[in-house]
Amino acid sequence: MIIATGKSSLIDEMKVQSGQNPAECYQCAKCSAACPVTAAMDLLPHQVIRYLQLGLEEDLLKSKTPWICASCFTCAARCPRDLDLARMMEGIRLSMLRRREGNKFGPADLTPEQLEKLPQQALVSGFRKYNK
């Protein structure tokens, strides 16, 4: 593996817009231990921060993990470094969505049954998180 040494625009922007500096993480992995949805992730939460530390931007953009994150804030609540990983996850999602190439989900993806039963709150949050 070649570790990126150049500048990563994703990571630079993320530091500013999320107010989180991945360098502050010492990889205790408490976030991964606390996360309720790791089973569906291809990278564990602490590995996402590790990838940010190493500048592995492209790998992160390919990862499923940021899209699995449910923004439940459990990681941030328990982080001993006072980092808010939910904000970093949002940064990775947004950088895809803002390229207008990463919409994960649109109205066409909904089944008629879902449209009928899902509470409005679920639809709005789904579109907010997965669509630009």
Binding site: V37, A39, W67, S71, C72, D109, A122
Partner: peptide
Amino acid sequence: TECCGAYLSVTEEGVASDTVAR
């Protein structure tokens, strides 16, 4: 106080099923 899976039920129903089951 554990998350139910939130909006994942829209896109990743399987994930929400796991959290809800617990």
